[in-house]
Amino acid sequence: MAPLRTALYQGPSGVPSSVGDSLAALDAAARRASAAGARLLVTPEMYLTGYALGDAVPGLAEAADGPAAARVARIAAEHGLGIVYGYPERDGRDVFNSAQLIGPDGERLANYRKTHLFGDFERTWFTPGDDAVVQAEFDGVRIGLLICYDVEFPETVRAHALAGTELLAVPTALMRPYEFVPQTLVPARAYESQLHVAYANRCGPEGDFDFAGQSCLAGPDGAVRARAGATEELVVADADPELLRAVREETPYLEDRRPELYRSLG
């Protein structure tokens, strides 16, 4: 099976002035990613609105099939690639910190609600999701979705691996001084659970936050195949299903587990 060429868009930096500006930047990034041969583009957490929203969150939240989703679908279809993007999702009275995967034909393939909320801001304005594993088939690769803090829990990544996820797309808003997460922890997660991790972070100052960048695509062998710096950037690398199978065969962590010994972990 051919590798899935994956682009990570780290940007734009700063607070977007409108969802329209974010969509215009997404269109430009999708054009560049498509020209580089990418089939999938992953963007940061809360990409459409920016992260530092304060009490503006409820007013900017949209349904998963709302107007912004329709515009992302048109961008995906125009450039012929899938797009993972973060956004605030409204469902009734609840607002979720969500990520959605749109296919290259504009079809909505998967929608994930962040299960592990980070800090007072997120716990004030968002409802945690209840579905740990959300997946979709894309170009013959099983893609799973997590958001930022979720990937820092080994249980969430392992749950994806056991459910067959091959590429884990992780829209992120990681602040300084936690650069060790993309530098050390994300490659370790990819290695220990034997999957590809596409970790797309925000960058630069935004309100009271200073985002660390360092977006990366880490492989199941622990190697990082693409790494962004600290500023706005688009990086592209391949997620190879054949590498995943070879690594799982060489070091069969998933098969050699003894879950009967871990029941006390809860």
Rank of each mutant, 00 (worst) to 15 (best):
Met1Ile: 08
Leu4Asn: 11
Thr6Gly: 06
Leu8Met: 03
Leu8Lys: 15
Pro12Cys: 05
Ser17Trp: 11
Leu23Ile: 03
Ala25Met: 07
Leu26Met: 15
Ala29Ser: 12
Arg32Gln: 14
Ala35Cys: 00
Ala35Arg: 13
Ala35Phe: 02
Gly37Asn: 03
Thr43His: 01
Leu53Asn: 03
Ala64Asn: 04
Ala69Ser: 14
Arg71Pro: 02
Val72Pro: 10
Ala73Ser: 10
Ile75Cys: 06
Ile75Pro: 08
Glu78Ile: 01
Gly80Met: 13
Leu81Met: 04
Leu81Ala: 09
Gly92Gln: 07
Asp94Leu: 08
Val95Lys: 04
Pro104Leu: 10
Leu109Ser: 12
His116Leu: 15
Phe126Gln: 10
Thr127Gln: 14
Ala132Thr: 12
Ala132Lys: 13
Gln135Cys: 14
Glu137Ala: 13
Gly144Phe: 05
Cys148Met: 05
Glu152Trp: 07
Glu155Trp: 02
Thr156Leu: 14
His160Pro: 11
Met175Cys: 13
Gln183Glu: 15
Thr184Pro: 06
Ala188Asp: 05
Arg189Phe: 01
Glu192Pro: 00
Gln194Ala: 13
Gln194His: 11
Gln194Ser: 12
Leu195Met: 15
Asn201Trp: 01
Asn201Met: 03
Gly204Leu: 08
Pro205Val: 05
Phe211Met: 03
Phe211Asp: 00
Gly213Phe: 04
Ser215His: 01
Gly219Ala: 15
Gly219Trp: 09
Thr231Pro: 11
Thr231Ser: 15
Glu233Ala: 06
Ala237Arg: 10
Glu255Tyr: 01
Glu255Thr: 14
Glu255Cys: 02
Asp256Phe: 04
Asp256His: 11
Arg258Cys: 10
Pro259His: 02
Glu260Asp: 13
Leu261Ile: 06
